[in-house]
Write a protein that binds this DNA or RNA. Structure first.
Lengths: 174, 174
DNA sequence: CGCATTTACTTGCTCAGTCAAGTTAAAGCT
DNA sequence: AGCTTTAACTTGACTGAGCAAGTAAATGCG
């Protein structure tokens, strides 16, 4: 298996990584800035509103929402609290499971989402789709999928939750 | 100018964005985790050591280092303080300009960098280069450059520093 | 040469995110 | 039915980053 080669990057690889790393560093703030400036939303929070706006009854269980948002439950819980404080989301107990909590998008939240959407889509067009050819766009899809798959296969990869490293389950002291 | 089209994503665009957004969310932690676990370094801090290790005298002015690292001066200043506290970097006054500060990589810092490098390169291979074909790698370089360029052209883009929005310079009250 | 400006940082405040440790509810086992 | 596990969050302590304001040195210019 030709896996762990010489631990060096070729010149080509270095070019690739340096360009890509710059995007990794700059793109998140570039996506956040317009939403923050105009709508008091981070890109992450916008993503939550997006998921809820699309969901039946504009309602999702927190754990499902965390999954959609590629987020830890902790991060989600705090984000929902912020959105709740602004009146854009409401928490409700899940009637079918007392452990779960439902997040419901309020009308104000939906309005805010609708207001923010054009600006956000414009940003995406400007920084992602306009600068790429159709072919490059397709390439980016494939490349992203492959990288995402590789990340999921990393040693200690936790899909989204804070899996408490099960240790050896069922090995109680007895 | 066919610029601000209908504010919607096509299905293709949605596919692209959803795949790419996942990478944007997952890759940074995937790069950080091994460095943090094994070497008490974030990926960002590793980048600083990398830049210093390559520099003449293993020394760079903070502002230059900030530039290399795509970082604000604030972020850099704090990061250097952390590395200094661990004994991996030293601050020195710049003899040629009293305002500047030099960051010098210590021997311990260099050692730490050398120790961490193989693990980090292995991570890069695993999550970026192994999963891509040579062609895709070239495509990623081009795509990244184009996106980075587009970001730089965004309305309020600050290259790296915290440019205090000059307003109208030279327009004092007088 | 003296004073206003600009440059190069540094630091206080605040906020978002993580990890670890709780809490409450459902499931599983016997 | 009772007791241990597991699941679904929530919260406290801590860390890293951003913005705004502050400091100190150099520069510009009249």
């Amino acid at each position: 298996m030709p896996h762990d080669r010489d631990p060096t990057l070729t010149d080509d690889e270095l070019d690739t990584w340096s360009a890509f790393a710059t995007v990794l560093e700059w793109l998140p703030p570039a996506l956040d800035a317009p939403l923050a400036a105009g709508f008091e939303l981070t890109h992450f929070e916008y993503g939550l509103l997006y998921a809820l706006a699309d969901a039946p009854e504009r309602t999702l269980r927190l754990s499902v929402l965390a999954d959609y948002a590629n987020s830890s439950l902790t991060r989600l819980s705090r984000a929902v609290s912020r959105l709740e404080a602004r009146g854009w989301v409401r928490r409700e107990p899940d009637p079918s499971d007392g452990r779960s909590t439902l997040a419901v998008l309020t009308l104000e939240g939906l309005t805010r989402f609708d207001d923010a959407t054009p600006a956000h889509l414009a940003t995406l067009q400007q920084v992602i789709f306009d600068p790429l050819t159709k072919a490059q766009q397709r390439q980016l899809t494939q490349i992203s999928r492959r990288i995402a798959t590789a990340i999921r296969q990393q040693p200690g990869w936790q899909p989204t939750a804070n899996a408490p490293a099960p240790g050896r389950a069922g090995e109680s002291s007895a």
